[in-house]
């Protein structure tokens, strides 16, 4: 089975399964994605405020404000970590039975993990994108209300840099938080996975 046979490859079967799973479980997936969106939005907004302060220290800004932003940035990262791993862990745990069943049908451990990897990848990219845009938008908006915004090209550059980092953090956290528990579930005896009731 690991060798690529004529028609659908393992990758294609896994991809089809992941797509069905996202499609049919849409609202459940949205709920899981919300954790990612909020975490990343917070992270991106703090990062953006930081970058803006760095570009053009606003009137009220002082050293104390800068350190406070540093703390906030670290805190937002921890929040991301907890929020994302919690929602992904939940959505994998709900599906232990499905994992056990897939194994009964002849799925390899690798196939199971791969399905979860693909789902998390799609979910992570979409949710992080929404969160990033939201976070950067809010930060720039807040700055515009309270103070003058620095030159547009500088802001765009800063936003792109923050956006890149936020996307990376969001996708990586989502994928890792999904694949690790999926790996654990795939490795346990199928009978044990089937027994789990949530």
């Amino acid at each position: 089975m690991s060798s690529t046979k004529r028609k659908p490859t393992m990758l294609e079967i896994a991809f089809a399964q992941a797509v069905k799973s996202i499609y049919v479980r849409f609202w459940r997936q949205v709920a899981a994605a919300l954790g990612v969106v909020l975490g990343i939005a917070f992270f991106a907004s703090v990062r953006t405020s930081q970058a803006l302060t760095h570009l053009a220290p606003s009137g009220t800004a002082d050293a104390e404000w800068a350190t406070r932003l540093n703390w906030l940035s670290a805190l937002s990262l921890v929040m991301c970590l907890v929020g994302i791993s919690n929602s992904m862990l939940m959505s994998v745990t709900e599906r232990y039975r499905e994992i056990g069943t897939l194994k009964c049908l002849g799925a390899s451990d690798r196939f199971v993990v791969f399905v979860f990897f693909l789902e998390a990848l799609v979910l992570g990219v979409l949710a992080s994108l929404v969160g990033t845009i939201l976070g950067i938008g809010v930060a720039i908006g807040a700055r515009a209300i309270s103070d003058s915004v620095p030159d547009a090209p500088d802001v765009i550059l800063a936003a792109l840099r923050v956006g890149g980092i936020s996307m990376l953090v969001g996708v990586a956290l989502t994928v890792v938080a999904s694949v690790l528990p999926a790996m654990q579930a795939a490795r346990m005896p199928a009978a044990a996975a089937l027994r789990v009731e949530v």
Partner: peptide, 16 residues
């Protein structure tokens, strides 16, 4: 998440 037919065909797809 799979229909009746899709449930039945899955092991066949696994078998190549």
């Amino acid at each position: 998440v799979r229909t009746a037919l899709e449930n039945v065909t899955l092991p066949m797809l696994f078998a190549g």
